[in-house]
């Protein structure tokens, strides 16, 4: 018998541990989610620690989405009209977290006030015990207004607030800093830009243990390979000890996969594409699995079927770790 010497990488760095949700000090969560802490490349338990398995979040929108895929509309049914019900159902389907989008606050989609946004967040918090990610409507001014109000009203809940971008990070970071929340730092598919935003946030003295980074997801067939390689490079840099890349990574898989034609079109597509019901889930699962392999720590999904498949895959991937 030949002895094979297994090459083991000795990494000097580790991904930071980040905890979402709190059940004390103002926090009312019945469960919390901790991600990060890896000292090896994804799922290579033989050369480092993988203390926390990646978490699955389900996206919930505060108004019935008008532009979602018919497959998603059919699957969620009436729950789409009520974010609290929707969130509760998502938890039943296996979500570790809820990612709540305050889309109705967008000036073009209802322009609801910060007060109304706070009420919605309260209702969802009351409906589920899992931690919350809260996304603003996606315009700088309104994001600032809404997220600051939500942050103040939910002090201590340890929400993850998004999106924090280079152009507007200051207000959201300050709101997180003052109220015990986390931020999600999003940058456009680039290692350096991701690192730069972490530096800027850290310069404001928000502990990096309260920062998730979103390297911006490209869906399967729509730039997935860029995201994949950027995440691999970020994770390698983190393990090699670059302190400004050691944030756990969150990927908005569902949003990106389901907005593509493959996730929406039921008719007038080539036969080789298969049926929409299978195709949508296949697109979401493939995007998700690929990014898990490159270091994703939180996946934000849309379809309960994908949650199930990925939960099983994660069981398998983290077996024995």
């Amino acid at each position: 018998m030949t002895a094979v010497e297994i090459p083991v990488e000795k990494w000097s760095g580790a991904v930071r541990e980040v905890t979402l949700g709190s059940s004390y000090g103002g926090g009312t969560r019945t469960s919390t989610v901790t991600v990060g802490g890896e000292t090896s490349l994804p799922f290579l338990g033989f050369e480092g620690a993988l203390p926390h398995r990646p978490a699955l979040a389900v996206e919930v929108v505060d108004m019935k989405p008008a532009d979602w895929s018919p497959e998603l509309v059919a699957t969620w049914g009436d729950d789409l009209s009520d974010p609290a019900n929707w969130a509760a159902r998502a938890v039943e389907e296996g979500a570790d977290l809820i990612a709540l989008k305050l889309r109705s606050c967008h000036p073009d989609f209802g322009d609801r006030s910060a007060t109304e946004a706070r009420a919605t967040v309260d209702r969802v918090l009351a409906a589920v015990g899992v931690p919350l990610i809260v996304y603003g409507p996606g315009t700088a001014d309104k994001d600032n207004e809404v997220l600051v109000a939500v942050a103040e009203a939910t002090k201590g809940e340890q929400l993850a607030l998004g999106l924090c971008e280079e152009k507007n990070y200051r207000t959201i970071v300050a709101a997180a800093l003052g109220n015990g929340h986390l931020v999600i730092a999003q940058t456009p598919i680039d290692v350096n830009l991701a690192k730069q935003l972490n530096i800027l946030i850290s310069d404001m003295r928000l502990p990096l243990e309260r920062v998730l980074m979103d390297p911006n997801t490209g869906a399967l067939g729509y730039g997935l390979e860029y995201t994949y390689s950027v995440m691999e490079r970020l994770r390698l840099a983190a393990l090699m000890g670059d302190a400004m890349t050691q944030q756990p990574m969150i990927c908005t898989i569902g949003e990106e996969s389901w907005r593509q034609k493959e996730g929406r079109a039921a008719t007038d597509v080539p036969e080789a594409w298969g049926e929409l019901a299978e195709r949508g889930v296949a697109w979401e699962v493939t995007t998700a699995m690929t990014l898990l392999e490159s270091g994703a720590d939180i996946l934000v999904l849309r379809h309960p079927g994908s949650v199930g498949v990925l939960r099983e895959a994660l069981d398998d991937l983290t077996k024995g770790a």
Partner: peptide, 9 residues
């Protein structure tokens, strides 16, 4: 170096 004494809100 790693702070922003005049960080805005």
């Amino acid at each position: 170096g790693s702070d922003a004494p005049r960080a805005t809100t």
